[in-house]
Design a protein around this nucleic acid. Structure first.
Lengths: 182, 182
DNA sequence: CCCGAATGAGACATCAGTGTCTCATTCGGG
DNA sequence: CCCGAATGAGACACTGATGTCTCATTCGGG
């Protein structure tokens, strides 16, 4: 039979995004397998969440790769990053808030990813594309926060899924205020 | 003796913001009271969280009142709102993500507050101050998300507390991109 | 100072979730 | 088709948290 490990993780992510305290039994049901099988593949709840985090890290890293953050002007690179991140927005939002709300050591992998996003905003500032009165660290956090908010807004029907990336990108880059040149 | 109910709630908020799954025992310790006393004042964990939500709603409502959202230009009203919200940013971030990550009916009170924030963004659009290609619903969600992200960034030392309101307001209103006129 | 009210400490039963185990059944490659 | 591997169903013990209770102690207003 050979169970599809990633398929289970995706089902778990979909459930945990809605209900962070879902039990192993609920996760198993959501994945369409028995609790026993779930335990056979993940040593325990912690292991499952850590595997989920690993999956999120890999997916986000792929998004970073595909966005080619070093190429072109920084603003376009940010737009590409948001577009590539869209498929993982839900799981990323879950992991972001989970890391904030729950104790326990943070997976080292995030540091590497944070550094790449951080570097993108630094480049944008050095090239004169981004304002220098907003720190790169804050822009990084704001990006995560907006992605999470966007994913939730879509999930609850307050924002159309097709508008998600544009809403996030436009707000992050351009803000809410109207400008003369648009 | 007469225990200060709000003081307990504030301690609970401070703890739950860092660790959303803190037990009644941990909350009691954090508040400097015994678990028995905590149970005497709040029927159970649910009741405590609901009381916490009520407190957050009241505080945020006061911030909305004090910000006088109907007066002056909309952008300044947004700045005033963010300033007034700063003292409750932590608890607000907790409640925002809690409402997204945990099941259970949402407190009706949020609708009233959401409507007021929503109306502010509508007014800004009607007056030509805000862009019309970002929906008021999204701007509302983005405001909450940025406040939560900001509170976490301050908590973790990535952003200085004194910069919080400016960082949130500037990003929400002006975005990350540099403009010619500043 | 005194007495009632509030608190702290701890015992206790209960419950939900976890992790482990067994055994029957099902799947699928060879 | 057959046999080993994987799964499903369920029993089981264990843990941590919850909610209730009692009793001694402490507080503070009158």
């Amino acid at each position: 039979m050979s169970l599809d490990r990633e398929r289970v993780l995706r089902a778990a992510a979909a459930l945990l995004t809605r209900k962070a305290t879902a039990s192993m039994d609920e996760i198993a049901k959501a994945a369409g397998i028995s609790r026993a099988t779930l335990h056979r593949h993940f040593a325990g709840r912690d292991a499952l969440v850590r595997a989920l985090e690993q999956l999120g890290i890999e997916q986000f890293e792929r998004a970073l790769d595909e966005a080619r953050l070093d190429e072109g002007d920084a603003a376009q690179a940010v737009r590409r990053l948001i577009e590539r991140t869209e498929p993982v927005a839900g799981i990323l939002g879950f992991l972001y808030s989970e890391n904030q709300l729950f104790e326990g050591e943070i997976n080292e992998g995030w540091n590497r990813l944070d550094a790449r996003v951080h570097a993108l905003f630094v480049r944008g500032q050095e090239e004169g594309a981004f304002r220098i009165d907003l720190s790169p660290a804050w822009l990084t956090d704001a990006l995560y926060g907006l992605i999470a908010s966007g994913a939730w807004a879509v999930h609850d029907g307050r924002v159309a899924a097709k508008d998600l990336t544009r809403m996030v990108a436009e707000l992050l880059l351009g803000g809410a205020q109207r400008r003369m040149d648009r």
